[in-house]
Amino acid sequence: MARVLSLLAVLAVLLGALPLQAQNDLPPAPYAYKQLDDPAQEAAAQKLMETLRCLKCQSQSIADSDAPMAGDMRHQVRSRIAAGEDPEAIRSWLIDRYGDYVSYAPRVTATTWPLFALPLVLLALGLLIMLRRFGGPK
């Protein structure tokens, strides 16, 4: 009896997993796993895909992720690059929709500029202190 019950439990778990599995029933998008024929275009696409965030699996890039949605994003990137679109234009298109979050490439914006300015300020400050300590007449 216990064996039958545990078998039923296993079956229930397997059945419960079916709807999730079905996400992969549709074949991947044409360019999800297929490289572009032109090596230069494929290199540009790869470079861009490595710096775009997978929205389903948020700490991976779409180049790293096997999520179907990441595959569809790779298809977007590759087919747009094959059509001659500039990689940065594709990035901006995605940022318009998902915000800076979708891109791993840092950008200077109204909120991020201190991150870029602060090291320069600190460097200048350090130089100034060193000059006053060591340089100049006593």
């Binding site: 998008a29 929205l55 389903k56 179907p68 949605m69 569809d72 994003m73 298809h75 977007q76 995605l94 318009d96 929709r97 998902y98």
Partner: peptide, 11 residues
């Protein structure tokens, strides 16, 4: 291909 999903910013 999730194209409309991307176009309207749905994640």
């Amino acid at each position: 291909l999730s194209e409309v999903q991307f176009a309207i910013g749905s994640s």
